[in-house]
Nucleic acid binder design. Sequence first.
DNA 1: AGTATGACTCATT
DNA 2: AAATGAGCCATAC
Length: 125
Amino acid sequence: MSKLPVYTFRDKNFSESFFELVFAVVRLVPYGRVSTYGAIAKYLGTGSSARMVGWAMNASHIVEPPVPAHRIVNRQGLLSGKMHFETPTRMEELLQSEGIEVKDNQVVRFKELFWDPQTEIDKLL
DNA sequence: AGTATGACTCATT
DNA sequence: AAATGAGCCATAC
């Protein structure tokens, strides 16, 4: 019997929708680009703190359509979530397969590859 | 119910 | 520039 998740966002229960919001934003991150937990949390209103985005990523492996969780790194460009993939090297491999260079658990030229939903999505509007 | 623990970040030192 | 402390908030025990 699996328990149904209930998530809190700005003092309201959004059930799965908080996850869906996070997933929706993450899925917008273009191929070959990266974003951060904090940027996504901020875009969603800051009410949920960056930790909750990482928490959402934990569940992102089992949802459809897939979420490119490997494109989410911490604000320094470090692959802080690599341990949560199938293998500790999986995240790095996925990034490099997209042409993103990774050295010492860190995304090279992170600042250029960084995709900020706040500014990038606003640009499209 | 209280404490500890994060796929985090920011301000301060 | 690197380390530290505080804020964050759901989960696990």
